[in-house]
Write a protein that binds this DNA or RNA. Structure first.
Lengths: 212, 212
DNA sequence: GAGATTATGTCAGTCGCTGCCACTTGACCA
DNA sequence: TGGTCAAGTGGCAGCGACTGACATAATCTC
């Protein structure tokens, strides 16, 4: 049972610390010896827990590598859900990404150094297994986004337009994220700029008003 | 050394037979006991080879599950490369998919029963690991498509428009493929219809003429 | 502080996958 | 035609990811 949110007790705080320690150890080892070159045993040892415990916090090795990225995506989804229904779908998505980036650096730094996260992001793109897992999560996110947009616009589930829009939007996001990690070296201001510029390229092209 | 294509000798024919047998055995077992419920040992045994040999034909268990799907994608890519440069990007993609579907049922039947392929496709969507691998391959395909379109249109590599277009196009393809497997039960005529209809939804919306 | 919960460690075992080496089989040529 | 070379195959040993079962230790609750 869960009381409606008390101050977290010792147990919860300890769990959080262990989890963060596992993430930090994992990302550091990954960036040092590569993803495949790092064993779960090593990660667990570095965080001072048993291998079995690692698998109680993360269902598999991929998950720990994607955990920070995951947080960023949760923020984005949450931001989308908060957008007023009056905004057009594309505007809502655009505003939501930008909003979800406010204070994200601090949120990341609370777990791992920002630079480590950037290196991890690059590693994800280069490691087939991780890229695959990452794309699957993205696809799940796209599903939820499309469903939310269909809901907002009052469209039946079969209407393909939300999915097409979300696909185009996600395509932009994937590109700009890659540029952010590879070219910009993790600079958020530059990411905002590139994203806005790239989104402007679909804006006019996809801006059919579905309601008129 | 490879002579420029002689008639395949006994050795080649035997390899082909083994490979096809492995695919058939694998897909049948998958559809019977599920992907994770099937071991590579079982697949190898069913095809009458050793486990070691299985891994000489497929780098991993995923690959055999995606092998037929892979063939379809190769056909599509080849069809795109054959499109005349005069066609607009979206038209080229559209014509290429439809063209790549001519005779595809026969090509599939040469390896496995069509119905088994449809069931496999459904399984891919439902099995996280397979979906992930599938999406990664799709992403690779998208990269190549975008590069080809950029080349055709004489655009610099940074221009995001080819990628956005390809992302939207692929979004449509993913949707219609799912419908094909789930709703249409593998009927190609229906797939063509749905695809055309869905593509019409982005056609006008994305039909900026990049050259004018 | 006793007793119920929950987190952790240990251990044994399965499965995917790889390197290594010995053996067989089809290809090619004198 | 027979012999040599290259390529395909099997068996085995071993690593690493992951899981179930059980015992132990740490918090929580009253």
């Amino acid at each position: 049972m869960q009381a409606i949110e008390g101050p977290p007790g010792l147990r919860e705080r300890k769990k959080r610390r262990t989890r963060d320690a596992l993430i930090r150890s994992a990302l550091e080892l990954f960036s040092l010896k590569g993803y495949e070159g790092t064993t779960v045993d090593e990660i667990a040892a570095a965080a001072d827990v048993s291998q079995r415990t690692f698998f109680r916090y993360f269902t598999n090795k991929e998950e720990v590598a994607l955990s920070v990225q995951d947080m960023a995506e949760s923020r984005f989804l949450a931001a989308v859900l908060e957008r007023p229904a009056a905004e057009s779908p594309l505007t809502a998505l655009r505003t939501a990404v930008l909003a979800s980036w406010d204070g994200i650096e601090e949120a990341i730094e609370a777990v791992v150094p920002l630079e480590l996260h950037v290196r991890t992001y690059r590693m994800i793109q280069e490691t087939p297994q991780l890229l695959a897992a990452h794309l699957r999560r993205q696809a799940e996110l796209e599903d939820r986004l499309a469903a939310e947009i269909a809901r907002r616009e009052g469209l039946p589930a079969q209407d393909p337009r939300p999915r097409i829009l979300v696909a185009a939007f996600s395509g932009v996001m994937r590109e700009t994220s890659k540029l952010w990690a590879d070219v910009a070296g993790g600079d958020m201001a530059e990411l905002r700029g590139t994203t806005a510029a790239y989104l402007d390229q679909i804006g006019p092209a996809l801006a059919e008003n579905w309601r008129s």
